[in-house]
Design a protein around this nucleic acid. Structure first.
Lengths: 121, 121
DNA sequence: TTTAATGCAAATACTTTGCAGGAAA
DNA sequence: TTTCCTGCAAAGTATTTGCATTAAA
């Protein structure tokens, strides 16, 4: 597994901290940076593992990566414009733990996302 | 645009109201029903337009279709053997509604999944 | 006959992987 | 040298579309 190419991260930052692998690749091309799509994908995978970015999905299934703080949180995503709000999920954490315990599951994790139409759309 | 093949809908129902196109296709094959993947996709598109199903995304980007108005549930999945348990999520429903309202979001939905290692693994 | 449904095969889009060449340590 | 990084090309997966065949009305 390779380490993340730092230019991928800085491009994601310049893109507003919110872009797909394909978009980052095209942005870097336009900026004259020689890089392969493969390296963009591999860098994003590394950034994911290091919890420097997290990943959401567009309606069409394309993965979009976004910079995130290291605290565990969830997202409230607008289906229309894609704007996201980071939300707290203490209720979820408790719920996940209790249902897992109830069925004898160990080493648990969870995903949770809320989506809808934001007030501007 | 073709009309929905009724067997696709009934298969989705039998699958617990929650499955991907590929899963529905494989289920129908195993049940000896002659159908093409194309027809499954086209039927699901029709059901979407008629608001009989809606669509969410798995973590890997695969589209999963869900019966609307179905009292939906969540899953507890074993990372090792893949066994799943359907779980109730009243706490999640409340949480989703309150965070959405707090940020002025409308027409909300949500996804939530808990994963871990089951007692047999 | 006229229209709609079906499904194979090809096309498309995103993503991952095999592998060989190159850079860095 | 040895290890890591890179990127082309190929493979893989989900989904859509063109087109000819078949079923239905």
């Amino acid at each position: 597994m390779s380490r993340s190419n730092p230019k991928v991260l800085s491009t994601l930052e310049r893109a507003g901290g919110f872009a797909s692998a394909q978009e980052i690749y095209k942005l870097m091309q336009r900026n004259g940076q020689r890089i392969g799509l493969t390296t963009v994908y591999r860098s994003l995978q590394s950034l994911l593992k290091e919890n420097i970015v997290d990943v959401l999905r567009r309606d069409d299934g394309e993965a979009i990566y976004r910079l995130c703080g290291d605290s565990h949180h969830h997202h409230l995503v607008c289906k229309n414009c894609g704007s996201t709000v980071e939300i707290e999920g203490a209720a979820i954490e408790k719920w996940a733990k209790s249902v897992a315990a109830e069925h004898g599951f160990r080493d648990i994790g969870h995903t949770a996302e809320v989506f809808g139409t934001c007030s501007n759309c």
